[in-house]
Design a protein around this nucleic acid. Structure first.
Lengths: 327, 327
DNA sequence: ATGAAAGCGCTAACAG
DNA sequence: CTGTTAGCGCTTTCAT
């Protein structure tokens, strides 16, 4: 068994509470004794037991991070950033994958809730109602969804979609498609609204295709619809869908961007590596991870009364090789 | 504050110890009272506090999962599988990213150690000595590295490398390169040994290039070396490196596979989406995640005395479009 | 089958 | 500045 606070107390000839203070309120203890305690601790390889500490303080110094699918390349940079940022603030993070299943999501939140000071919900599949209910027990920060009374980190994908459609228009496209995402997705709704408005303003036709799975397979399957829709430009729900779509078009002898232009969303790494390199709406995922952690820890510190914060992060269009004038 | 065991005891008119038993040793309590207790618990939304439980039982029901880089697409499927498998066994998992830094890795292990029943070390960058030392406190399972006295999950990349070189040879290549990984990598060492042996047996020349960063950038940077080495076939440390390399070659006017053949390792998704589709040594990452969790929980149950287990998982060669006969 | 009591490792008043 | 005392929520002997 590892050393406990009692071992350290004994070794340094002080009471356990002094040892406790030496760690959690160093200024309250005489420099000389503090050093003695710290030395003994070092010596024994003592590390405070955070679970025990949590029991008295009510702070676990853990946070939960719940995502729909770790394998979706959109998430790892967010997880990585959140986790690194949390660690800098002396927090550990539980990562859980719901496999896109709302029931799993709910179960996970409930079991995690006791072990964490707050949870980060990324692109939740749960209904707003369910989220509000669950949020009574522990602070939440929601990423990519607006939930009443809850701190939120949004990436302004509406603006990105607008830029994307405008880019297509400026290239000369007159009839474009939006290959939408899953029906529960807030992001997909935002894209639809923004694309619709932009198309109307620019006087181009917009056809909406979907819902589709947010994966390469979803894009692959959408290729037929896109061809049938008779469009020359496409905005896809995300890069995975865009890549799958390009592959599907390729299999049907349609080349991107010479025959058809495609724009993705996210700016995942493999979009930069594929040929043609993907024109895409870049999402600030790392920043979102850090911001979410900041908001979460702020509301942990503030207690219940705090007004929920809303952070909206900019998106921007990265023009690469998958868009060109129509032929 | 959420309901505690005491609230449930009061609500159901029994002592707390009975409530405790109703949850953790149901057979020790009368069916009628048990139902009453369970009903009251349900009613109050009571969930046992795992941290408090851990304090008395010594089992946290958490495990730590430490990886070098979450953003490397090799890891997410492993994390996803491990996490899902752990959850089925009623375990939560802390995920931590060391950013390829051994110091961070050590620090992480130490702080996590008190909160977990065991840790999964994936592709560690720490020295074997350090790992053995740290392993005294808590059970470890190491993935992709052999450490004395420790349970291990290995993917037989040596066999994969052999298949890869043989494939190149059978295509007619006579001079091939291995674009190696980081110097601390066990996998890279295995590949080197296997490739060297296979080349010798087949009577072809092998040149070893590296060390290289295990990323697209590493591959991109290796393009010049590869060209200079005058080889016609390449086995890259992983798919990321292979993709970066192909890109670097492309920029220099060299086409894959017509001018040069390239084989990767891992079988990440974007390798299947890129053009040319990558020929690669497929690694059973999901299986590795599950197996690692199984071994870990086994040694948690068994206590210290258990003999470390070794699981070796098969790899195989997936031939796609990035390899062809030399011209 | 259930209750009583002690204690896991730690922190937080409260004294002194 | 440091020691004392009382728990945090739960499990686990030991009685009954």
């Amino acid at each position: 068994m590892a050393a406990t606070i009692r071992d350290v107390a004994q070794a340094s000839g002080v009471h356990v509470s002094t040892v406790s203070r030496a760690f959690s309120a160093p200024h309250l203890v005489n420099a000389a004794t503090r050093n003695r305690v710290l030395a003994a601790a070092e010596d024994l390889g003592y590390r405070p037991n955070r679970a025990a500490r949590a029991l008295t303080t009510g702070r676990t110094h853990n946070i939960g991070l719940i995502v729909a699918d770790i394998s979706n390349p959109f998430f790892p940079p967010l997880i990585k950033a959140a986790q690194a940022h949390a660690r800098r603030r002396d927090y550990h993070v539980f990562v859980a994958d719901t496999d896109e299943d709302p029931l799993v999501e709910e179960e996970l939140i409930q079991t995690l809730t006791k072990q964490v000071d707050g949870v980060l919900l990324c692109s939740p599949r749960l209904s707003n109602r369910a989220i509000e209910r669950l949020g009574a027990d522990v602070p939440f920060v929601v990423v990519n969804r607006k939930v009443r009374g809850m701190s939120t980190v949004l990436m302004d994908v509406g603006h990105g979609a607008r830029l994307a459609v405008e880019h297509l228009v400026s290239l000369g496209h007159r009839r474009v498609a939006l290959v939408a995402g899953p029906s529960g997705s807030w992001t997909s709704g935002e894209m639809r609204d923004a694309a619709t408005a932009t198309a109307r303003e620019s006087g181009v036709e917009l056809v909406i295709l979907g819902p589709n799975a947010p994966t390469e397979l979803g894009g692959l399957a959408a290729a037929a619809d896109v061809l049938q829709a008779g469009v020359t430009g496409v905005l896809a729900y995300n890069d995975l869908v865009a890549i799958g779509l390009i592959e599907g078009l390729y299999e049907r002898g349609v080349r991107v961007p010479s025959d058809l232009s495609v724009i993705g969303v996210d700016d995942i790494v493999s979009g930069r590596l594929n040929r043609p390199k993907l024109t895409t709406v870049a999402m600030p995922t790392s920043a979102a991870g850090r911001t979410a952690v900041d908001l979460l820890l702020a509301s942990v510190g503030a207690g219940d009364g705090a007004t929920p914060a809303l952070a909206t992060l900019e998106t921007n269009l990265v023009i690469r090789e998958s868009t060109a004038p129509p032929t």
